[in-house]
Every structure is written in C-alpha cells, then in structure tokens.
Design a protein around this nucleic acid. Structure first.
Lengths: 151, 151
DNA sequence: CTAACACCTACAGTAGCTGTAGGTTCAAGG
DNA sequence: CCTTGAACCTACAGCTACTGTAGGTGTTAG
C-alpha cells in the first residue's frame, strides 16, 4: 500500500510543527518526498518512521548532528554498532554533566532565596549575593590611560 | 579615585569576552560608558560591578530579561523585595524542572545504552529504541489524495 | 461555486553570544 | 621619531533548532 500523508498529518503523527518538517528537509535530515500534482509533499510510511526517529532522538536531547550520524549509521545494518553506542554514551554523558551543573545551580539558588526575609530591596540577600563578585584588585593595579580619568 | 578600565581588562575582571560586553551595552543592559579621546570605552568600578552582577546571574542561569528586571529593581532600594524574590524563585523552579526532565532523559538513555551488547547495527537496541515510535494508525485511516500514490 | 483551510516559498526573528573583516589607537622598543 | 604588534573600533554574519509571518496557490466541504 502506498498511502501517503500530507505534511500536516505527518506533523500530527510525529508530534511536531509543519515548519519543523520542512526545516528537516531543508537541512537534509529528511529526503525530499514526492509531490502531488499541486506541488504538495506526500510522505510515505518510511518518511514518517524517519521523522519519528528524529523526533524521538530530539526528545532525548540528541543534537541534530548526532541524529544525522545515527541516521547514516542506521543505513549500514551490517556494520558493528560501536559508533552508534558511542553517540548514545556521549549524549548520556552530556545529560549527566548538565544534571550535575544544574544541581549546583539549584543549591546556590536555594540558599539565596531562603536567606531572603522579605524586607527592602536594599537588604535583599538575592541582590547582594548576585552583586558580590567584583574583583577590586583589578582597579587597585589599574594604570590610567589617556584623556579621561584621574589627573 | 576615578580609575577606569579598558574593555579588555573589564572582560578579564568579569570573566567574559570583550564582545559580550559590547553586546550587553548594545542591548541596553550596560550603560554606554564614557570614551577616551581615541574613542575607546573606559569602565568605572560601578560599571564593572554591574557587569559582574550580570555575569553571576547568567552563571546561575537567569535569562537576560530576568537580569534586566533585577537590575532595575536594584535601582529602587526602598521598595519591598518581593519582586526580586519572585524572579529568583521562578529561576529556581525552572532549574528544578530542568533537573527533573534531564533525570528522566538520563534513565531512558541509560536503559538504552545498557541494552546494547555490541553486535551489528541491525540488532542495535539504540537504533531500535529510537525507531520504535511510529504511529501506524495514521496510515490506516489515511485518505489518498490526488495524483501520486496507489491507483 | 465559494468559503475556509491546508499547503507553498522565502525570509525574518528567537536567545545569547561568538567570530570575522576591515579599519583605528595605543604602548613600547629601537 | 618611527615602527610594530596588541588591543581597540564598527558592522555584520553565523551558531542551534526551530518558529512565525507575508503573500500567494491548492484542496475540499457544503
């Protein structure tokens, strides 16, 4: 059966916007599908599978370049899957790094908001914490240049 | 003392690139500093404080609009700090959401890479998991349009 | 037949920088 | 005094991964 979907239904099937599909086609992630007599794209089942693959990988945070690599690896089923594995592990490592980073942010933010006792802005710990990172020594050793500044 | 820093030293002090400072000035986060006779920017201590504030807030993940709001709130020290607090709490909430989301990604990615036993790509669980999300029912109910497709 | 909607291309905009081209200015060494 | 090279200047393009808009054409239901 060669039933085909218009771009709107393809987008619905993949859970993305119509423009996103056109974008993927434009950057070469999706093949250019055949068109109807009226020049409208008609997607076959295989195209939708590919699109769904992309969307699922995106949902897992894979960048488009990684997805590009995965797709071309997927076209060589007899090759060993080390490269595939490496991409997935890199993504896992990236996610883990980001979690660690965000957890550090979370604790600093928590400390900050918990110290705020709801007074005036002048006394606000949030502003204070954010402000308190100037390096004065840069000024102490600064050499005045020309024109403007102390005489 | 009206010692002033050129943009390179200011960038060094704030731990950012020269272009970033010019960008902040361009979008109105930093005031336009006075210039030397040769048209070079000269930053006062107060400018560097403001820049350091921005960089610290950015390091905590605050978006520039939030920083813009925090900066203008900081200019009204006698106001209650509720609004400041709300921005910080919103950022905390955002970070927490992202952590939750990334933790879900992490477990799905982990499951995926752990299932891979290092065979051929054709049998690779990574590719399989990413592929296996097509909604066939879209095709079952699809109505053929014009021109291309089954006769 | 017509109204409403889906589709088409092409391009601009989003966040938050970063890099480049092509040209001054400045500080220091000879 | 002159030159060299680093640091500065403006203006603009590019990055990721879309998303939105304008202005036009195709398709379909009533």
């Amino acid at each position: 059966m060669a039933t085909r979907l218009t771009i709107g239904r393809a987008a619905e099937a993949a859970g993305c916007k119509v423009q996103t599909i056109r974008y993927y086609e434009q950057i070469g992630l999706l093949h250019r599908p055949p068109r109807s007599e009226g020049n409208q794209r008609l997607f076959a089942h295989e195209d939708i599978r590919r699109l769904a693959f992309i969307r699922h990988a995106r949902a897992l945070g894979f960048p488009l370049q990684a997805i590009r690599d995965l797709l071309s690896l997927g076209d060589e089923p007899d090759q060993p899957c080390e490269a595939v594995d490496a991409i997935a592990r890199a993504q896992l490592g990236d996610v883990e790094q980001r979690i660690t980073y965000l957890q550090a942010l979370r604790s600093e933010l928590k400390r900050m908001v918990e110290q705020c006792r709801g007074g005036r802005i002048a006394d606000c710990r949030v502003i204070e914490v954010l402000s308190d990172h100037t390096r004065r020594e840069m000024f102490d050793h600064a050499v005045p240049r020309s024109g403007v500044g102390s005489p």
